[in-house]
């Protein structure tokens, strides 16, 4: 399964980053083969709708699951029909993407069953 993990940096040993829409990078890992690649998040500087854009971005990369710290309502509504399963990485401790992937492979990560917060859009444009 191809899993996108939100990270700060560009390596599998870079730290896991709990932000979804505005995280710097997604590390795309094949959970069986261990092959990975890093992708700069297009949505990092979006003026609005970062969650929607990031969700389309990782769906376009072919991710079947994503691990991040939180999902807003629009990110959730975009990832769900795209068939990308959302998992919640540990936000209490500092782990690398590699360590988060191990927890995922050991099925120790919970799946998000709805958006985890109310979204940040309240703009006055």
């Amino acid at each position: 399964m191809k899993v996108a993990i939100s990270i700060t940096g560009s390596q599998l040993d870079s730290p896991f980053d709990a932000r979804f829409g505005r995280v710097g990078t997604f590390c795309l890992v094949d959970s069986e083969s261990g092959e990975w690649s890093a992708h700069d998040n297009l949505a990092v500087s979006a003026s609005g709708g970062a969650g929607v854009l990031a969700a389309q971005f990782i769906a376009g990369l072919g991710a079947q699951a994503v691990i991040s710290g939180a999902y807003g309502p629009k990110a959730y509504d975009t990832l769900s029909p795209a068939g990308v399963k959302m998992f919640l990485g540990p936000t209490e401790e500092s782990l690398t993407a590699r360590q988060v992937l191990e927890l995922f492979n050991e099925e120790k990560l919970a799946e998000a069953n709805g958006s985890t917060h109310a979204g940040y859009h309240g703009g006055n444009h």
Binding site: G48, G49, A55, A59, D77, T78, A82, H121
Partner: peptide, 25 residues
């Protein structure tokens, strides 16, 4: 439509089209 939207109010994922009116300008 999703690509041209400056405000990311439209998402197209597979055969699903999503519209978020509160983001639309």
């Amino acid at each position: 439509c999703a690509q041209v939207c400056e405000f990311h109010a439209i998402a197209v994922v597979g055969k699903k089209l999503l519209f978020f009116p509160e983001l639309c300008h």
